[in-house]
Design a protein around this nucleic acid. Structure first.
Lengths: 121, 121
DNA sequence: TTGACATGCAAGTAGTTACTTGCATATCAT
DNA sequence: ATGATATGCAAGTAACTACTTGCATGTCAA
């Protein structure tokens, strides 16, 4: 008995990026934006339907936008959601990282105590 | 018949971040680093075992490090892998984003053509 | 030493995900 | 018009994920 799952923007975004095939599609579009479905199929070892479904996930996460040209579907990257990941997740933890680096440096200079292993006094 | 799934570092990392409960744990640790398992359990509406398993995924992705103090298991954030996401995924697409902003600005100033919707001539 | 606390390990399960196959539809070129 | 191309939609399935329950183990405090 699971409770219902959240479907926030962040969820769609991280879920979309959690598959190596989808990340590969992002990479291929980064190398050459605006490719058709058939073109993108060449890079992945699966059926066209599989690729279609992966692209649909990327679209749902707003990482890829499509534009029709006749019978062809062109795919374009939208880098904005990635920036949101940075703002929400990377930059927030950046301070912590620099702080940890500082502590490491300091403890190395002082020569002894590991900053994480201080006793409970 | 699936082929075997990749288990690269990037995969562990994105998979770890793809669950809202695990992201919540990261947030709680960000607010207060070094909490025990029992403390972290208070924030999530699931059994201790569920939380344990989520923390194990974060550990496997190297996002959380543990340290034992008697019978208590303390959890500490490691922000370094997040930086790797930035280097590999965000910064790479940053140029594209700025470029798109520039094109948008230009096309707004010129007043007419949407840069993505140019005809095939 | 005993009981309460903090945690681990193993097995079971419902729901989700990542595919597949098969068929239908629209567009382009001749 | 006809065939080749580009794609969509629906249903089926194996593997995976996110949990749960039950029991075992180690540590602390009186």
């Amino acid at each position: 008995m699971h409770i219902i799952r959240s479907v926030s923007d962040a969820d769609l975004l991280f879920k979309a990026l959690s598959d190596p095939g989808r990340r590969k599609l992002m990479d291929r579009l980064h190398a050459n934006d605006g490719q058709t479905l058939s073109e993108l199929c060449r890079y992945l070892d699966m059926t066209r339907q599989g690729v279609t479904q992966h692209l649909a996930v990327l679209e749902a996460a707003n990482l890829v936008a499509v534009q029709w040209r006749g019978r062809e579907k062109l795919h374009f990257l939208n880098p904005v959601p990635l920036q949101e990941i940075y703002d929400r997740w990377i930059s927030k933890f950046e301070r912590l990282r620099l702080q940890a680096l500082g502590e490491l440096k300091r403890s190395l200079e002082e020569g002894s105590t590991d900053p994480k292993r201080r006793s409970k006094t």
